[in-house]
Nucleic acid binder design. Structure first.
Lengths: 219, 219
DNA sequence: AATTATTTTTAGGTTTGCCTAACATTATTC
DNA sequence: GAATAATGTTAGGCAAACCTAAAAATAATT
């Protein structure tokens, strides 16, 4: 099904408000979209025709299964473009949103698939928001590598990038595993190595190892 | 000055027709834009209001200085995106046009500047058409059609005149693309067809096809 | 519960960009 | 040069997406 830019904006914004605050109201949505409540009502009727929202006059409304799927794909496009702008074109993260707002409406699916691959299938955009994959699946927690984690901020290990036996052996030796609380206490700029506190002990990790260990970053 | 997507499409198309055939007519433009002549007349009045075209009813029309400058910038955006799609995302050159058609309307100037730098300030798009630089300057190639190229003079393909999907498909089949070395080995005067050497193989091309393939003449 | 305030919808209007059908102008042909 | 053909314009309409102002429904307050 094909949607206009306006319809896409509404679907995306309903989705985001649902995520954020749990509920969506006409006024609420109008404010977010910089439109008048009356315009929102117009569009809700249109989206109901297309079976994208459950909507009854004067009652709360929300996305249908179809509506949700569509919205997720628009969010995916938006965040992939944000990632592109930040990572490849060197934009600051506060500049990317408005431009991605336009790019997200370019309709080729192949384009998005190829862009995703070109970018290395990133899971989080520069704001730390998750980028849904092509099936719409969302990896909720932002994963931050130890090599970029802030100092003195204890976090739980949530994953490992490189999963070769070699590195797993090493991690095992240090007692590093999923769920273990760790804290970066020092970082040495000249070679990217860092000091990691695990329980009562401190260990020195090379940059090569550190960048493959991820923690969940509280959002 | 800010333009709608529709206005941009008109400006670009008037520019391209001017380049191609020297003249633009209402019917002509309507066909190109897949619209009716009456719609073209409507838009011409609007563009005249904005001082983008010189237009008097029933007379020929053309872009003003301002209109030309604007059109060149839209063409620049289009061709930069084509280059990106082809070079970075691996699209075939006959696929890039339609997607670039949408991308060209994203309005951030900074975006285009950074994209240009990211791509290495290319001067020609995948079809061999010149990409105007940020000031609007166009580096023209001396292009010679295969139908007039001297025999036994190997040259690199630099561009294609007609850019319909039909011809691009055909060229793709023969392995003809920008940068490919070709050589005209025979020419048959009675119908203008010619024998073309591409690598180790020889193919027969009709005059209609040959006159649309251009090579760069030593530069 | 009645009143007031807030939220949401309806009714009717505007702009943009397109359309068809009828008319006007210019070009071509006999 | 008159008749015909082709091209271009005007007039009037339509759909999308917005708006304002008034009315309806719901929520909050006394």
């Amino acid at each position: 099904m094909k949607f206009s830019i306006s319809e896409e904006n509404y679907l995306k914004q309903i989705y985001l408000l649902q995520q954020d605050t749990g509920t969506v109201s006409t006024n609420n949505l109008a404010k977010e979209l910089q439109a008048k409540p009356a315009s929102v009502t117009d569009m809700l009727k249109k989206l109901r025709e297309k079976k994208m929202v459950h909507y009854e006059p004067y009652k709360a409304f929300n996305l249908t299964e179809k509506g949700n799927r569509t919205a997720v794909h628009i969010v995916r496009r938006h965040r992939l473009w944000e990632f592109f702008l930040s990572e490849k074109l060197g934009f600051e993260w506060e500049q990317v949103h408005d431009i991605a707002e336009e790019l997200e409406h370019v309709s080729s699916d192949t384009l998005i698939t190829r862009l995703d691959d070109f970018l290395g299938n990133p899971r989080f955009d520069p704001h730390g928001d998750p980028i849904p994959d092509s099936s719409g699946k969302i990896y909720r927690q932002r994963q931050v590598s130890l090599s970029t984690l802030a100092l003195n901020s204890p976090q739980s290990v949530s994953g490992v990038g490189d999963q070769s036996t070699a590195i797993l052996e090493l991690l095992n030796h240090y007692g590093i595993a999923i769920g273990v609380k760790v804290e970066v206490t020092r970082r040495f700029d000249f070679d990217g190595s860092l000091e990691l506190q695990i329980g009562k002990k401190r260990h020195l990790l090379s940059h090569a190892v550190a960048k493959n260990i991820f923690v969940q970053y509280a959002q």
